[in-house]
Simulated assay, not measured.
Amino acid sequence: MTDTTEAPDRANASSQDMTTALVQRKLAWEELLGLMRAPKEPSRFDETIVAHQQLVDWDEQILLPLGENLYIVAKDGRAIVKTRVGAELGPWDGNWKMQCRVIVRRTRADLLEIYPEDQLTIDSDLIEIREFLCPISGTVLDVDCVPPTYPVEVDFTPDLAAFYRDWLGRELPVAV
């Protein structure tokens, strides 16, 4: 049986429409492949911000997406980390994970809740899995696999000012 569903005709879609479909994961594989192979439009970052801004119910300006449900935003003249549903997790250059709910999987029984027995290759004496959840929605924001007692990691801290100045050619709209 062949699949008769077709992707919407986006041949005449605007660049913003394509970027919005990309952010919302609504592109067919062929469309996504075409975007990956094509030169990036200079407007792509701004279009991506517009697409993400449409997904949230709050008004603060998104400065930089950090993940699927996590953003650096401008609030009251400063940059903070905020989740898609609006939980504020502290300053943009702090460790936002410290403001999350956390599930720590330390035992074999804990790990079997997420791995099938025949695929469990993690030694629970050497490794624990930490799931960082949005304090409002419970959405998983990040997962770390680390040795027990290892400090809570900061994945990366972007240089916001340099990104805006050197890559986008404009000043960051907040002080950092």
Rank of each mutant, 00 (worst) to 15 (best):
L33G: 03
L33N: 09
G34M: 05
L35D: 05
L35W: 05
M36T: 12
M36Y: 10
R37I: 03
R37D: 13
A38G: 12
A38I: 11
A38C: 08
K40Q: 13
K40W: 07
E41A: 12
E41G: 10
E41W: 06
E41R: 14
P42C: 10
S43A: 15
S43R: 13
R44N: 12
F45T: 10
D46R: 03
D46G: 04
D46F: 02
D46Q: 07
T48Q: 09
I49H: 00
I49A: 01
V50Q: 02
V50Y: 00
A51T: 01
H52Y: 12
Q53P: 04
Q54Y: 00
Q54D: 03
Q54W: 00
L55Y: 00
L55R: 15
V56I: 15
V56N: 09
D57P: 02
D57C: 02
W58V: 03
W58T: 04
W58I: 02
D59T: 03
E60Y: 00
E60M: 01
Q61K: 14
I62E: 01
I62Q: 02
I62T: 04
L63A: 14
L63Q: 06
L63D: 07
L64D: 05
P65L: 04
L66P: 11
L66Y: 06
L66G: 07
G67H: 09
G67C: 10
G67D: 08
E68S: 11
E68R: 13
E68A: 13
N69K: 15
N69V: 08
L70E: 10
L70M: 15
L70I: 09
Y71C: 07
Y71F: 15
I72P: 12
V73I: 14
A74P: 04
A74F: 06
K75G: 05
K75W: 14
G77C: 03
G77D: 11
R78I: 14
A79N: 06
A79L: 08
A79G: 13
A79F: 07
A79H: 05
I80F: 09
I80K: 13
V81P: 05
K82H: 08
T83S: 08
T83N: 03
T83W: 05
T83V: 08
R84M: 10
V85F: 04
V85P: 04
V85Q: 06
G86M: 07
A87G: 06
A87Y: 10
E88D: 14
E88P: 02
L89K: 13
L89R: 12
